[in-house]
């Protein structure tokens, strides 16, 4: 157990704690502009965590997509709606906390059956991954295993994701792509 591993573990827990504080701030603050910026920070902290956890490709995606693109879209939505949230009634808060505490307890109970963090003998590391890590250099010939798996071993999966992006863009065009007609009906803007 060397100093490098201990540092990375401490960093991981510290980043998680910062994410928790950001999450609590998101839940409390009612100025939606601040909430959107905090959610960008939350995503960025997530990206930092992925680097610590060796998932560099994921970190890259999260920083570009989660922290960048979705924050821009949310600010765009704020420009079209309002940036104040009404106060949540106390009864609702209490109910929400009650439900979340129950689910949290259930999840913690379930976690006792899980392998410990970082254990190389965990079942998840025994089956498919060793083949990808061992054989992909001979079969695909690319050093980045994530790219090999993404584009070649699991090409169907990625094709589906590409279609999802396509469908989402078409859906957004259908919903708000056209400027709305002038007060012709209650909503307008459908088709045109």
């Amino acid at each position: 157990m060397n100093i490098e591993i201990i540092t990375s573990d401490l960093l991981e827990v510290a980043t998680l704690v910062i994410m928790g504080i950001t999450g609590l701030a998101i839940a409390r603050i009612r100025n939606l502009f601040a909430v959107v910026m905090l959610s960008g920070i939350y995503s960025l902290m997530g990206a930092t965590l992925y680097v610590i956890l060796d998932a560099v490709d994921v970190a890259f995606t999260e920083a570009a997509v989660g922290a960048g693109a979705s924050t821009v879209l949310m600010i765009g939505t704020l420009a079209l709606t309002s940036d104040r949230e009404l106060a949540t009634p106390n009864a609702r808060t209490v109910k929400g906390i009650f439900v979340c505490t129950l689910i949290f307890a259930a999840l913690v109970y379930g976690s006792f059956d899980m392998p410990l963090y970082g254990d190389p003998l965990a079942p998840v590391h025994q089956h498919v991954a060793p083949r990808y890590l061992g054989e992909s250099m001979g079969e695909i010939g690319l050093p980045n295993v994530v790219t090999s798996v993404l584009a070649s071993y699991r090409g169907y999966d990625t094709m589906g994701e590409t279609f999802v992006i396509f469908t989402a863009a078409v859906g957004v065009i259908t919903l708000i792509g056209r400027a709305r007609r002038k007060k012709s009906g209650k909503d307008g803007g459908s088709g045109s």
Binding site: L53, D54, A55, D57, V58, T61, E62, V65, G66, A69, S70, L73, M74, V124, H125, V128, A129, Y132, L133, V145, V146, V149, L150, R154, D157, T158, E161, V164, I165, T167, A168, A169, G171, V172, L175
Partner: peptide, 23 residues
């Protein structure tokens, strides 16, 4: 090396996440 398989799954999930957020 860390396990690359969850990385692939989550990488695509992030992009689907922004698509659903936009919608």
């Amino acid at each position: 090396y860390s396990n690359p398989l969850p990385h692939v799954l989550i990488l695509t999930a992030i992009v689907v996440g922004v698509a659903t957020t936009a919608l």
